[in-house]
């Protein structure tokens, strides 16, 4: 079987994979990084979102072999160096931007990619950017609010906690 090598959350890893092995399978089963989730099989839900070379990708539609040599960041690599929650993660907790937690890793990764491109997005821009990430629990209210807050914008006028 072919061998693949990549840097995941700053650590060089390698493993043997089949041609059909998806990046998400390599992360979850090969590396035990189970924070990246699989919520669908049509590349719609975004629970599998990771960063490859700094860009947001859906790891359920990416072959592991296609990212040979790449820099991959998953939800496990998002906290601060001291283990504390990053600004985005903390905003999700502060504003109750998650309930069951299953879509959350993908939401955080998508939000991080947005804020890198657009540090002060509008509500509409956030909603548009999260088009490829489905949440069934929150009605998105607190997710959008958390991303606004993570970008340093005042969310006190938005109703509810």
């Amino acid at each position: 079987m072919p061998k693949v090598t990549m840097r995941v959350n700053g650590r060089e890893v390698s493993g043997e994979v089949e041609g059909r092995t998806l990046l998400v399978q390599f992360l979850r089963e090969g590396l035990g990084l189970t924070g990246t989730h699989v919520g669908c099989d049509t590349s719609q839900c975004g629970a599998c979102t990771v960063h490859v070379n700094g860009l947001q990708v859906k790891s359920c539609t990416t072959f592991a072999l296609d990212v040979d040599g790449a820099e991959v960041t998953t939800i496990e690599g998002m906290a601060n160096a001291d283990g504390s929650l990053s600004v985005i993660q903390q905003a999700f907790q502060d504003h109750h931007g998650l309930q069951c937690g299953f879509c959350t890793p993908g939401m955080v990764m998508a939000a991080a990619a947005l804020l890198k491109e657009n540090p002060k997005p509008t509500e509409a821009q956030i909603r548009h950017h999260l088009e490829g990430n489905i949440c069934r629990c929150t009605g998105y209210h607190n997710i959008v609010k958390a991303v606004l807050a993570a970008s340093g914008q005042d969310v006190s006028a938005i109703a509810a906690e």
Binding site: R28, E29, L33, T34, G35, T36, H37, V38, T74, I75, E76, M78, A79, L85, Q89, F92, Q93, D94, H96, L98, G101, F102, T104, P105, V108, E161
Partner: peptide
């Protein structure tokens, strides 16, 4: 309105769902 303690594991990818168990 205290913050949720379960959020820390879900936000860091350390939750344990059934498919995470091997």
């Amino acid at each position: 309105s205290i913050k949720r303690r379960e959020d820390v594991r879900f936000l860091t990818g350390t939750g344990r769902y059934t498919d995470d168990i091997n």
